[in-house]
Amino acid sequence: MDNVKALGGDVYEIDTRMAGFSGITAGYLILGDRPCLVETGTSTSAPTVIDALASLGVGPEDLATIVVTHIHLDHAGGVGDLARHYPNAEIVVHEKGARHLADPSRLMASARMVWGDKLDVLFGTLTPTDAARIRALGDTGSIDLGGGRRLDSHYSPGHAKHHVGLLDSQTGDLYVGDAAGVYLPETGDLRPATPPPDFDLQTALNSIKLFGDLGPQRLLFSHYGPVDDVTATLERSAEELRVWVDVTKQAHAEGLDLDHAVAMVRDRTRERYAALSTDDPETAERFELLSGAPSNVAGILHWLNKISPETPS
């Protein structure tokens, strides 16, 4: 299939074709004695993911584990659909996200407030998963991949309070979710992902440092794909966070509303991203969908208002 790519080490990247785009959200299948899917993509992507797994020889009875780095709908929106299709799969998530997979009503209501009518097109509906099938991880945990291979979970909030990074004991691959930002392979751009309500700068920087301390051989971004230059990429992740926060802090200190703050951040950061100066409008549109300035700035402002609520009149 043209949306499945072998990455070595029995790892396969699956383009979930989110909202009809290529290169938006990746799921990853780790094949072996106990096949494991990392990230489901959206609910509307579930048929695409099921077809991809079937093309790799993984049928409904074969999948052992479905694990998500966090419960945002572009990463976990397909959990309920895939849990139904793969009845033997254990569903693994951080403990702060587990109840939302069992009862997604609050999560979906919150997403509806943010996305409005776009919700159905972009994400679809997260359906409930039987709580008995969900394993909730603490700050660390381990997933058995079979043959002595395991996926070790490391709590990495900052982007979201229910976020984990996942390190493959055999390959050294680190599944970074959104904690290291959003990567665009065509241009090499890296942009932060700082949506409300959980973003916290120091927590996010600590998570990036933790990723470096784990000594991974490769970073596997959910948005999007594998990156071999681990140290430089994580340094860039931290730098991008600081740049966006510094500009947003200035807008906050000047008492600017969200729209004006977004305009200011876009103006100050535009030259950092080749995707925004490309002649291909779809690349720029995809980058904005992946890591939209309004969402990022809103998350930073939410954090700033918690730590420094007073702004000049």
Rank of each mutant, 00 (worst) to 15 (best):
G141E: 08
Y183I: 01
E186T: 12
S153E: 07
G188C: 08
S169D: 01
P216F: 02
L137T: 11
G225Q: 06
L234T: 03
G141V: 11
N206H: 12
H159L: 08
G138T: 11
R135N: 07
I143Q: 13
R236A: 13
V227T: 05
G181D: 06
R150M: 15
D229S: 02
S222T: 09
R191K: 15
K209W: 12
D229Q: 07
P216E: 01
R236L: 12
D173S: 13
N206E: 14
T233N: 05
T129R: 02
Q202D: 15
R191W: 12
F211D: 01
L234M: 03
T194K: 13
L145H: 09
L145T: 11
Y183S: 05
A180T: 09
G215T: 06
L234S: 01
T171H: 01
A232L: 00
F211L: 12
S156W: 04
L184F: 13
V164I: 13
D152G: 10
L174S: 04
A136F: 04
I134E: 02
S153H: 04
T127H: 08
K161E: 14
S169F: 05
I208P: 02
T194P: 12
R236W: 08
G141H: 07
Y155H: 15
I208L: 08
P196A: 15
G147M: 11
H162T: 08
D173L: 08
L184D: 12
F199I: 05
S142L: 13
Y224T: 11
G172H: 06
L201Y: 13
P195I: 09
P195W: 05
Q217E: 13
